[in-house]
Amino acid sequence: MSGLQVFLEYTLAGIATGGVYTLVGLGFVLVFKASGVFNFAMGDMMMAGAYTFYLCAVVFDLHWAVALLIAVVFSCALAWLIERTVLRRMMGQPVIAVVMATFGIGFVLRGIAAIAFGSEAYQLPALLPRAPFFIGDIMLPGKSVRGFVLTTGLCGAIILFLRYSRAGIALRATAADQITAYAMGINVRRVFALTWMAAAAIGTVAGVIAASVTSLTPDLGTIGLNVLGVVILGGLNSVGGVIVAGLFIGWLEAMTAAYLPGDIREITPYIAVLAMLMIRPYGLFGTRPVERI
């Protein structure tokens, strides 16, 4: 195989992995945009969705589409419950307190999964056909490619939703100015609930894709930590930034895997983030708050 071919193959595979990062990143950004809270439970909500999918698809032997639908509905309900019982009570508390609460929620979810399913790794059914994909001579893993197509579609839908639907506009208004949104008659609490549910739904899809590419363990959520880097790189409040950054981090990981020895792959995203923070502390596309004096 020629050098160029190796490069292209790893590039495309990396971008495909990046798609999952992008999805999870969008889950972070949605919640952050609406409420200013960084949701550390995102990775674990994703894991919970993936286990629900496993339960439906393998244990109850349902068709994968039905299983996915049930998993999405279940995790939306879970997110609603979390929002209702924990986060809503904390409205008006300092953001850091709420962020710590999301940490706690994450640990609880992980603990429940470990008790219920044990720590062994499960294989998810082939959600997406395994048959490899060929672009010319370049061979790509079929799951990654199809997963990428799925994530692209979902990202597009989210962007359209935020930009044009009334709920999306209400969400952006809440993000821009909570008090004023309230005065306009926007039910800010419902917007919060809606973003949490949307994040959970996106996370479930991402979790199922991620788990079907590798395997399912209660620690699936730690992918959320990689995504933390992605989100910071892209800008916490930027949907476009997170998409670009997700793909970029995926690509960067693939590149280091291809050309650099072993474990460096694990730390490259963080090096990229560190470099980014020194040059543009608001992230690639994040907006710097401008004060008029």
Partner: peptide
């Protein structure tokens, strides 16, 4: 203080 939704 003008409270418009920036970015929109």
């Amino acid at each position: 203080n003008i409270a418009l939704f920036h970015g929109m």
